[in-house]
Design a protein around this nucleic acid. Structure first.
Ligand SMILES: NC(=O)c1ccc[n+]([C@@H]2O[C@H](COP(=O)([O-])OP(=O)(O)OC[C@H]3O[C@@H](n4cnc5c(N)ncnc54)[C@H](O)[C@@H]3O)[C@@H](O)[C@H]2O)c1
Ligand SMILES: NC(=O)c1ccc[n+]([C@@H]2O[C@H](COP(=O)([O-])OP(=O)(O)OC[C@H]3O[C@@H](n4cnc5c(N)ncnc54)[C@H](O)[C@@H]3O)[C@@H](O)[C@H]2O)c1
Lengths: 216, 216
DNA sequence: GTGTGATAGTGTTCCTGTTCACATGGCTCC
DNA sequence: GGAGCCATGTGAACAGGAACACTATCACAC
């Protein structure tokens, strides 16, 4: 019944994955600083969370630690990068090259982690046809053929809310299995497509809720 | 002991607040479409979640519904906006006017929800001193005095990771109680300051984890 | 005014994720 | 080579949020 490979994966909590990401970043820093080993306790206090949490998160994927010592920084870093799929390059399609889309494109941090925006789609005739930093901007209708030719694996949706579902449908139809959505819309996608939403309004409204509470 | 007003607030789950935000957006749409009432069931299926969830979320704050009918769209919308603090205008300070900062500034959606970016801080001498759309860009050192004069309540951190903690410290020192952080850094702030992080690397890495899993 | 149907509100159960606590087991030093 | 150390890995307790199922309540029809 499960579409997952059968050999393992005892169901990993979503939050664990997010923390792995954070640990990885921390390990990169530690490695740079020349630190060789780190304990779950040390790692935990940097993010003020529980050391058992850290151990449990890591133990989902294997026994990376050494009792009495801790974890070897570069070994663990490599393991986590492999687990998170950061040991390879992902081809990313950016859809929507407006305010947000261009900010994302110009941000160099993603490329360092192996996320390569190799093509941009935008239906604005002023933009489509141009090239930025050697990356072509194409009309959305060319998505299907480009997806295959470029082996696109991740789609970023940075178009206005009204266009978001249509764009997502196209991405899905093109065989893309992972979508990062910035539009404030609840997109419908098939179960085998992983959807991650970033909704800045929610973040701001959480803040204003808090402020409204304390100022009442 | 609790700094919260004593009359109510039986501890609201974080996720409830985030959902209120989503409900509000949906209600705005429904109102626009001329829909007068909506049931918890209808509301729930739009986000594929449970109708009991919706009712419980709303019941934390009062009895807004009418049994046998559902919720009156515009009444509920107004209530939720009040609860989320969207019935007033918040003064927002944007720190860092680079790729991301300018995308956020140019986005008009926030202003409609009452979040007004009334001043920008950036230490780049090429930027500081200028004005964009009537909003001044100032060096960070002027934060303290501006915070009082402009009654700044929310700070957005959009500077490089290395500068983020220093900026956050300044925001805190200036009396700002709510911070939205885009830098991939775990900021340390006092307990009475509400911190909301948006970490796009985590979102992308969650996607690549998923892709790496299924392709194994 | 009363009956009926529909839906909100809520106590309880269930389940997932977090924390605790301890036994396990590799490393080091004598 | 054995003893002691010390941080890991993990089963069990705990907590908090989500789902369920039931009861109370309201609108409306007759
Ligand atoms: N900019 C921000 O800071 C910000 C903040 C929060 C949310 N968002 C959301 O992110 C999304 C993008 O925001 P933005 O500010 O970049 O908007 P924008 O209007 O600046 O850019 C949208 C781009 O999408 C393109 N586009 C429109 N329809 C398209 C289609 N069907 N196919 C291909 N391209 C299409 C447009 O040509 C334009 O270039 C929006 O959904 C917005 O709500 C943005
Ligand atoms: N742009 C993106 O899409 C993106 C994506 C993910 C994360 N981020 C994060 O968001 C933050 C901003 O990214 P960006 O791409 O806009 O960077 P950027 O370099 O384009 O802009 C940073 C701005 O901050 C200003 N600044 C630097 N130090 C400052 C200080 N001490 N005080 C005041 N201003 C200062 C700089 O002058 C510059 O204008 C970074 O932390 C980055 O990691 C950005």
């Amino acid at each position: 019944m499960t579409p997952r490979p059968s050999f393992k994966i005892p169901k990993i909590p979503e939050m664990t994955i997010r923390r792995l990401s954070v640990y990885t970043r921390c390990l990169l820093q530690l490695e740079e600083d020349g630190v060789k080993t780190v304990s779950s306790e040390e790692l935990a206090e940097r993010f003020n969370l529980n050391s058992a949490q850290v151990r449990k998160d890591l133990a989902y994927f294997g026994e990376f630690g050494v009792r009495g010592i801790g974890y070897y920084v570069s070994g663990l870093k490599a393991e986590l990068q492999r687990i998170l799929g950061l040991d390879r390059e992902w081809q990313v399609a950016l859809v929507g090259f407006g305010n947000l889309g261009s900010a994302l494109f110009n941000y160099k941090g993603f490329a360092h982690q192996g996320f390569r925006i190799s093509v941009i789609f935008d239906d604005d005739p002023q933009k489509a046809g141009r090239t930025v930093d050697g990356v072509p901007i194409l009309p959305l209708r060319e998505l299907a053929q480009e997806a295959k030719g470029r082996n696109l694996q991740i789609g970023i949706v940075a178009v206005p809310p009204a266009a978001a579902q249509a764009v997502a449908d196209r991405l899905v139809a093109a065989g893309i299995k992972a979508i990062l959505n910035f539009a404030p819309t609840r997109l419908k996608v098939p179960k085998d497509v992983r959807l991650q939403n970033v909704d800045l309004s929610i973040e701001l409204e959480t803040l204003s809720f808090y402020l409204a509470q304390v100022s009442r």
